[in-house]
């Protein structure tokens, strides 16, 4: 992607992504005023944030056209990240703070 024409095409993409991110931010704020339950609000917010994050990662960080090494590294990172997020599920049966007489 080093030739001038290719770079200019990328610049157009960057501007479009910026517009999309700005619109999605407004949608995120607007959606927070909807009278929905906590779980639905969390799902909506996380979905929009994931779309925004994917745009930043794929276009601004050029992850759409990266080398295999980066994908492997990020794959391992994503797996460990999920472990971190779900490791707290083990606290479901936690008895701390529960007084048994």
């Amino acid at each position: 992607m080093d030739n001038l024409e290719s770079i200019q095409k990328h610049i157009r993409n960057y501007i479009m992504v910026f517009g999309a991110l700005a619109i999605l931010t407004v949608i995120t704020v607007g959606a927070s005023y909807l009278q929905v339950g906590v779980v639905s609000a969390i799902v909506i917010a996380v979905i929009i944030a994931t779309i925004k994050g994917s745009l930043v990662a794929s276009i601004f960080m050029h992850l759409l056209s990266e080398k295999k090494f980066v994908y492997i590294l990020l794959g391992v990172t994503a797996l460990l990240f999920l472990v971190l997020m779900f490791v707290t599920l083990f606290t479901v049966n936690d008895q701390v703070g529960i007084h048994v007489s």
Partner: peptide, 17 residues
Amino acid sequence: HFVDLVWIFLFPVLYLL
């Protein structure tokens, strides 16, 4: 961009939910 990415998740989680 990573710093931006983190804020994209922090903002709804802390401010809106």
